[in-house]
Amino acid sequence: MKRRRFFTTLAAAGSVPALVAQPQIQTPPPPGTPVQSGYPKLDTTLPESVGEIVPKFFTPQQFAALQKLSDILQPAVSGIPGALEAKAPDFLDFLLSESPADRQKLYRDGLDALVHAGFLNADSAKTAQILSPLKQPWTFEEPTDPLARFLRAAKADVRTATVNSREFNTAGAAAGGGSRRFGAQGLYWVSLDPL
């Protein structure tokens, strides 16, 4: 049946006018209108909630030194998780694996220097002596000594990796928080009209 003939035939039937009229009065939605539908929106879970990071960048000795250093720099305090609970060393292993070469070298050389200085088995007095470059006042220019430069970077990175972790924020908020702020959040810009 030809298209015009089909509609003519339909129009002759009593119940049909509503059927054929519907497309004529329907106006298209303006551009950019979200699709209205019954599509489902399921609750999902982020990868870190179900799995552990697999360290792959540092050697076992370097990673052991990073773990000890992280625990000293950012320990658990008053029930608030520290670097180890926040898995900061594991995260930093991942971050460094994606970092520029000079940053990777800074960390690898720095951790090797700690190992060679006996850091892994050092008592508290020797540990304080090894970490003494951190006692120097902060300067805009980075320290020239490679170990001092590494320790400065690690102090900042371990802290950030800890306080920005889920463990730190959820446990801190649950503990009442005190005068400290937990649950840091912000407005994330999605990728804008990419090529």
Binding site: L46, F91, L95, E98, S99, P100, R103, D157, T160, A161, N164, S165, R166, F168, N169, G183, A184, Q185, G186, L187, Y188, W189, V190, L192, D193
Partner: peptide, 26 residues
């Protein structure tokens, strides 16, 4: 582009970002 300040920004916890707030290196 013309951005939509409601559509193009999403409230997120820092720990839900792939790099814990550090950003993608480099």
């Amino acid at each position: 582009p013309q951005v939509d300040f409601q559509r193009d920004r999403v409230l997120k916890a820092v720990y839900d970002l792939p790099y814990r707030g550090f950003g993608k290196p480099g």
